[in-house]
């Protein structure tokens, strides 16, 4: 990645952006993402520390999402993500462990704000209440009819959700989220990573 040209986001349309808004949608597709697969109850699972449906913080600073039994998404900067996955494939010779750089395969958006759950109610049938989807929760769901991974990842106490989808759906889903957030005053934030 370091030697490659700049990452091109799947969101190619131009939007008026602002960082000031009670409900903010940000394209963070450039975030480094790794997919790790291993036994759900082996040494890798222990090291990553996030069981299915939950998330954890790796020592490297990466965020680890337990996206499925025996499957994790690792998020962060290149160094953070690499630090989290380094050595996993050799951790337990009896376990099949695979680590795949998924950065290019998944679009990633962040929705932040107190009305974020109300907005997501318009495009996704999950129960977004605090007991059912607390900070750190991870789930798979249809969002605007696109299969997505969704993680609640609050920012400074404000509800915030990460939404992942296949890169090719990225532009469609970004627009669908803007549409869903319109009635709540959604603002598009500058793309980040």
């Amino acid at each position: 990645m370091a030697d490659s040209p700049a990452f091109e986001s799947p969101v190619v349309r131009s939007y008026e952006t602002s960082e000031d808004g009670d409900l903010l949608l940000t394209d963070v597709s450039a975030t480094i993402k790794w997919l790790v697969r291993a036994s759900p109850d082996g040494a890798v699972a222990d090291q990553l520390g996030a069981s299915f449906g939950s998330s954890s913080a790796a020592a490297s600073g990466a965020t680890v999402l337990g996206s499925r039994p025996g499957e994790w998404i690792v998020l962060g900067t290149a160094a953070e993500a690499a630090g989290a996955v380094e050595g996993l494939e050799g951790l337990d010779s009896s376990d099949l462990v695979s680590c795949l750089d998924w950065t290019h395969g998944r679009a990633l958006f962040r929705v932040t704000g107190n009305e974020a759950a109300r907005m997501l109610e318009k495009v996704c049938s999950l129960d977004w209440s605090d007991p059912m989807t607390p900070d750190g929760a991870v789930a798979s769901a249809s969002v605007a009819k696109v299969t997505c991974d969704v993680a609640r990842n609050d920012v400074d106490g404000t509800p915030s959700y990460l939404v992942f989808c296949d890169r090719s759906f990225g532009q469609y889903l970004f627009d669908a989220l803007i549409d869903a957030g319109d009635e709540f005053g959604l603002v598009v934030g500058p793309a980040g990573g």
Binding site: G53, P131, M132, P134, A139
Partner: peptide, 13 residues
């Protein structure tokens, strides 16, 4: 019912 749903859902508290 909420207790039951929560107990059955991986992501829930």
């Amino acid at each position: 019912v909420a207790h039951r749903y929560q107990a059955r859902t991986a992501r829930a508290l």
